[in-house]
Design a protein around this nucleic acid. Structure first.
Lengths: 258, 258
DNA sequence: GGCACCGTTCCGCTGAGTGGAACGCATGGC
DNA sequence: GCCATGCGTTCCACTCAGCGGAACGGTGCC
């Protein structure tokens, strides 16, 4: 370290360095299915030996796994095990489940509960309808926030989240995905006015979704409930689903704040 | 440390100590929804300050969360986010999904894919049937391995797993749960002979399941596919479901080894 | 065959991580 | 009302765990 600076203290750290680095390693895999040691080391800016040590440790506990054929690494199933526990125990999840089931019964469509995660929406629960199963499996568990009704919904009521998505860019998923900051902001404004969001073929061609925001105690949009279905069927009567998701979201929010 | 020992080296460790300890902390929450700092420190045998530092670090990255009301800690949603990625990317999951969907269509029942995790079975995928949804939600995502057909199935073909369950005990879930080591071993023997497992009201009263083992490249039972339904309906014709899960499991195993 | 890169291993230096002690604050039994 | 107990949190000095760099064997591409 080049001397000269009057020994600036930096207690800023969020905690233990090696643990933080280990978690950084896991984060590396958020958008890459498989990575080698050297890759990981480069991404998080540590020595190769350090990355190797960290990954070996993570593997020892099942948080990561090594592909014996390629020698590269991937996320481990232990993460899934713990993640399931986390989700099942979350207050929101517990309260939301019956509401979502009711929504599904009333609409006969697929219902999602999603929360913001970084610049994407993470689908925490998905209740599928039998006949539409094939369609739905086209929707991954995590989608860029500007391409879905849930994502736009949360962004509309969370300035920080909206801006994060903007600076991360608005990559097109389909021809109808919002592509410019101008369109994006206009869409958010309309959502704030209407109280719900609609996405027509913006994430997957042929699928339309309607979402309403769930507000937490602090008044922040902490989740969204959405209905997804084939575009023609949903568009035939947008008002119905819109009213239903809104009321479900409101009930959920009220029970959360209790 | 009391001197006297000739300074025995112990390079046995699976890796970085502080990272391993951090993962131990997460494991503490496997069977407890919420824990305080002191609890955690006691469980993993470190100083309170260490536990606090570790949990603060985990919270900083969303792997844990602090309940602002009680000051205690729980698992964080980041685990869920990463866990979903891990599951979706797993080879088995990718191959199994269409097979499971087909099974569901043929039987009209609820289908599970489960993997062994510790002394329990972890449900990696669940395809629910509309009309039975209420019933199924009684089944949690993780069940003691002696009370389910999937668990007995894997145990029947994995001595280590079976013994682990035995030493952990056979807590009764219902009146019909296998309770003695003798019954347990007898059940496993029968499963080995028949090639599939049946659980009648052993996990949840009124529900019966039929499961077949999935073998990996090494010939170990690495997962199980199961069909669940109301006891009377399943028992009316056990052979059908049994043959179907067996064939699905065989196909999955073959494709896995490819 | 040479080169570049991979995952892995080894090693000595040092500062990050450790446990213990002290803090302020609830809780509850006397 | 008060002391005892336990909580989550903060601080600190000692020391050994974790760091980067160098070296190794293997693989695949020019």
């Amino acid at each position: 370290m080049p001397a000269g600076q009057p020994e600036q203290r930096k207690p800023v750290e969020g905690g233990l360095q090696s643990v933080l680095t280990a978690l950084d390693v896991l984060d590396c895999f958020a958008h890459e299915e498989e990575l080698g040691i050297s890759d990981v080391a480069r991404r998080i800016g540590v020595a190769k030996s350090t990355a190797h040590r960290l990954l070996t440790t993570l593997c020892a506990r099942g948080m990561a796994e090594q592909n014996p054929e390629t020698g590269r690494y991937r996320l481990g199933m232990k993460l899934f095990a713990l993640g399931q526990l986390a989700a099942n125990r979350s207050q929101m999840h517990k309260i939301a489940l019956p509401l979502l089931a009711d929504l599904k019964e009333r609409t006969g469509a697929t219902i999602h509960l999603a929360i913001p995660d970084g610049v994407e929406m993470l689908y925490v629960e998905r209740l599928e309808t039998f006949r539409e199963m094939a369609l739905m499996s086209a929707v991954p568990r995590r989608v860029a926030a500007h391409a879905t009704s849930s994502g736009k919904c949360v962004a509309a009521f969370d300035e920080v989240f909206a801006n994060a998505r903007l600076t991360a860019g608005l990559p097109p998923e389909t021809q109808r995905t919002l592509g410019s900051a101008r369109d994006y902001r206009a869409a958010l404004l309309q959502i704030r006015q209407r109280g719900y969001a609609v996405s027509i073929d913006e994430a997957v061609v042929g699928l339309t979704s309607v979402a309403a925001p769930v507000f937490d105690r602090a008044g922040k949009a902490c989740a969204a409930i959405s209905i997804v279905g084939p575009t023609p069927r949903i568009l035939a009567n947008v008002g119905g689903p819109a009213r239903l998701v809104q009321s479900a979201a409101t009930v959920l929010a009220r029970q959360l704040c209790r």
